[in-house]
Write a protein that binds this DNA or RNA. Structure first.
Lengths: 194, 194, 194, 194
DNA sequence: CATGAATGAGCATTCATTCAT
DNA sequence: TATGAATGAATGCTCATTCAT
């Protein structure tokens, strides 16, 4: 598996740094190669093309992201508790890695539609977690049973995503994890029984 | 009336079509000119450069968008009614103009950070409407008085935007305006008293 | 005759100013029109094309230049005196009109070979004066009778021209007319009997 | 030896040919690349931009030019002899390379002021040789001790340059090196004691 | 005579990808 | 595996000139 070779991750980490510091459109393959300490041609021994670097980057980072969140919510029983842990972890993981935050919220969105669709594919792992939380909420009667699961998922994801994007657009100045409580309250209200 | 600058709007409308059909990165100035039925050089009699076309496009279309929404909500008294009209109009206006929907949800987001910041500036007009609805809700006690206005705005905008983007990403297949009622219920719950 | 119409000279004077201030390659027809206070299209009622403006400019200004120099040297009897007056007048006329100096020494030389050949045609009037001075010198035995007239003319013209160009390249800082005496001495030596 | 950068000289030689044959303003980078037998992009591995090609061209060719002239005059004792060798070599070197003659006398002068200033910088090496010859002349009492060195340099350079330009403008038809003797006589007279 | 909106040909430069070593 | 020199397609913008009014 290519993931096991050290240069694979080395190049992905270099890509995150180069994209965060130079922006998506100025992140040339040669810059990534230099940052990774390899020759330009070496990139193509580990990735099919430039797009493959970006896909793999998102896949790799999102994989870790999802895994950590799942660990956090595994021990919780209620949907409310699970949702809180998800929001809190989502915010704190990005607050800990500014480069990654910039890359996922701003830069990677400048890619074309095709790449965005493939990124959406990867995102499904995250959305599945949301679906399972919503289902939990219905099972425990925390949420209304006729709650539209897809819309609820869009509300939760849209709200979290918009909040993070606003934070990044504001140059990561305010304390993102501190908002977890209020965001959680809003979303629980939205999903809850009236 | 804008009849005095027919070519200006002619070029903007051409840009929407060309970007929607070819994607942001393949929307060459010459294609826009051909679509508008003018010479390449004519573009530069009305716009400073290519970026100026995009800014102006967003400004022009968003201006009409905001105006129509404001007309809809002006006659309503409660925050709930205002919010419903906003969601319904937002969805139906985009459902009526698929080209514009694709351009604003997908293509224009591929622009660089600078352009994105200028687009955000223009978006503030829309966000101001949201703020005034939230304020109305607090005044009428529909919403909790300690509701965090900024987060509420992010939830409303994030949810609506995510819903529209999902619709566009699904090739505009499902009935977007039909979702207005459920989205409204979710958001009102979220903002409401517990 | 087109020369009699006031706008003809108005446009030529505007061209001198615009070229001097913006450089040959940034002297657009529209700038010249604006400086002359006429519409772009009006230029083409008086000149065939842009090149015609430049040719006419040189012709018009060089005509006055030659006339004034001829008046100065007409009353002198010796070649030495005539040459001195020519040098002195050449220097002082350009020192009096910095715009014209910049245009003839620097900017007009950036034109293509064809235009340069036509400018050379016009310059022949000036070179004829030099030839007549050299002939005078031979007649009066001031100059050696086997002096190569063409080379002598090139030496005189080359030296004067190089001196003026050096002055312009040095931003017209030093006192050009003050050099007339020394330049004259050098050239008279060069042409003179050994 | 410059064998280490064969493509560098290859491109410069191609540029001389392309500019001589097409004129400065029609010497596109792609034409130079094709003439040099490399891809367009390869040009930019060796030169910063198009202007850099022209600067380097002049530098490279003028460097060789100056070196050869210095070798010629090194063995001579008198200013007169040195000046003769300089003129003769200057004429014969250009007579041997018509392309280079056209490029330096006509085409490169069509560049903008900035480029011309940089060319003047490079020319200083040549002018320094003239200065040293003039100094030699003063030392040996061949030249008047109160000869204005700067004007003398301008006379020598102006005369030689004007002669070469006239030759180029006449389509290199007459025998340039054959003029060396007469030009030399004129200049020595000009600088000499009366 | 005068206007000025409209035209459209022309070109330097970047950068993802390849391949001989 | 690893290198890095070489490739070549692709595009926004300017400005001299025209012509309907």
């Amino acid at each position: 598996m290519k993931q096991k070779r050290p240069k694979y991750l080395q190049i992905i980490d270099a890509a995150v740094i180069v994209i965060a510091e130079n922006g998506y459109h100025h992140a040339q393959v040669s810059k990534i190669a230099k940052q990774a300490g390899v020759a330009d041609g070496t990139i193509y021994l580990y990735f099919k093309n430039k797009e493959d670097i970006l896909i793999s980057l998102f896949q790799e980072k999102m994989g870790v992201f999802i895994e950590k969140i799942q660990q956090e919510i595994a021990g919780k029983d209620t949907a409310a508790e699970k949702l809180y842990m998800l929001i809190e972890k989502h915010f704190s993981l990005l607050a800990e890695d500014h480069h990654l935050a910039v890359v996922t919220q701003l830069e990677l969105r400048q890619s074309n539609k095709e790449l965005r669709l493939r990124i959406n594919e990867i995102l499904k792992g995250y959305l599945n977690i949301l679906d399972s939380i919503i289902q939990t909420g219905k099972d425990t009667s925390e949420f209304s049973e006729d709650l539209d699961a897809r819309l609820a998922r869009q509300m939760i994801f849209g709200t979290i995503d918009e909040t993070v994007t606003t934070w990044v657009m504001n140059d990561l100045k305010f304390d993102l994890p501190a908002l977890a409580g209020n965001v959680h309250k809003l979303l629980i209200n939205g999903c809850g029984r009236v």
